[in-house]
């Protein structure tokens, strides 16, 4: 055999073997132990990387659970089933799921009920419209209805209704809170899934001013406060708010509300649907 060929073969062969052996040795020496529980938990998680748990993604949440930084029920989206399984993997008693929360639009000012100040023909985005003097609704608190929340919802749980207000599909909504953050009018709030009575208004204007611009707004008349047996409703800044811990969902406030801005979901169609599935 040619000497050059032989030399190349031998030198390259030895080099290859040395490098290979070196890498094999290094992979043993520098091995990074990955806790198998992290992967197991990550597989259980919904994988939407929605960030509702406060971590950038499901993988980070799984890591935090394993290193005991957060409790197993941190994943709002996953619900009770996942909490039990995660607890099992972690070998702790199930922490019990938090009551799932759903997004609720605190505005009842549909195209019919709320007045407009003018026409908007800019970018179809509530945030852009808000920059132009607060948008076109005469009520400065009202929903602009351009559907920024619809686009932002990673679960496609929000749809734009025919009446100009977004509708949250209760079955799909996971309570991740992305719509809460993105709405420039701050209209979304997360409410416990088990509550059926809600105030669909966010206006803190005086009653007379509300009346001028919207027929579905809270005028701060305090009637609901008076009829509530459990003291769950209070009116501050001309706006009723419900303490969901005290509320028994009797619906008296809704019956007595002159502008019907308080609703009982099982009787109404606004806000959260689907109505068929509301009875628990």
């Amino acid at each position: 055999m040619e000497p050059v060929l032989l030399r190349s073969l031998i030198s390259m062969g030895i080099l290859g073997v040395l490098l290979g052996a070196g890498l094999a040795f290094a992979s043993k020496k520098f091995i990074v132990e990955v806790d198998p529980r992290i992967e197991a938990i990550e597989e259980l998680l919904p994988g939407a990387n929605c960030g509702a748990c406060g971590f950038p993604g499901c993988a980070n949440f799984a890591e935090a659970v394993v290193s005991s930084q957060v409790s197993a029920n941190g994943c709002v989206v996953g619900g009770a089933g996942i909490v039990d399984k995660i607890s099992q993997i972690m070998g702790v008693e199930s922490a019990g799921a938090v009551i799932p929360k759903k997004a609720l639009l605190r505005c009842g000012g549909t195209c019919e009920k709320a007045l407009d100040r003018g026409k908007y023909s800019g970018i179809e985005d509530c945030r852009a419209a808000t920059l132009l003097g607060g948008g076109t609704k005469a009520c400065s608190f009202g929903c602009l209805g351009l559907g920024t929340c619809v686009d932002a919802c990673p679960f496609k749980a929000i749809e734009m209704g025919d009446d100009g207000l977004p509708i949250v599909n209760k079955n799909i909504c996971t309570g991740c809170g992305i719509c809460v953050d993105i709405c420039p009018k701050n209209l979304f709030t997360l409410v416990p899934e088990t509550s059926d009575v809600h105030v669909l208004c966010a206006s803190t204007m005086k009653g007379a001013s509300v009346r001028k611009v919207c027929s579905a707004g809270c005028i701060g008349c305090k009637r609901c406060e008076k009829v509530c047996d459990t003291g769950a409703i209070s009116v501050t800044d001309f706006l009723a708010s419900i303490d969901y811990e005290k509320c028994t969902t009797c619906g008296k406030c809704a019956e007595n509300c002159p502008t019907s801005c308080i609703i009982v979901l099982s009787h109404q169609e606004r806000g959260l649907v689907e109505v068929d599935d509301i009875a628990h």
């Binding site: 390259m12 080099l15 290859g16 490098l19 290979g20 070196g22 890498l23 290094a26 992979s27 520098f30 990074v32």
Partner: peptide, 15 residues
């Protein structure tokens, strides 16, 4: 060959 092996090694060490 050497560069590829080296990068692998560096990756392991850094990790």
């Amino acid at each position: 060959l050497v560069i590829a092996a080296l990068v692998q090694l560096v990756e392991m060490v850094i990790r």
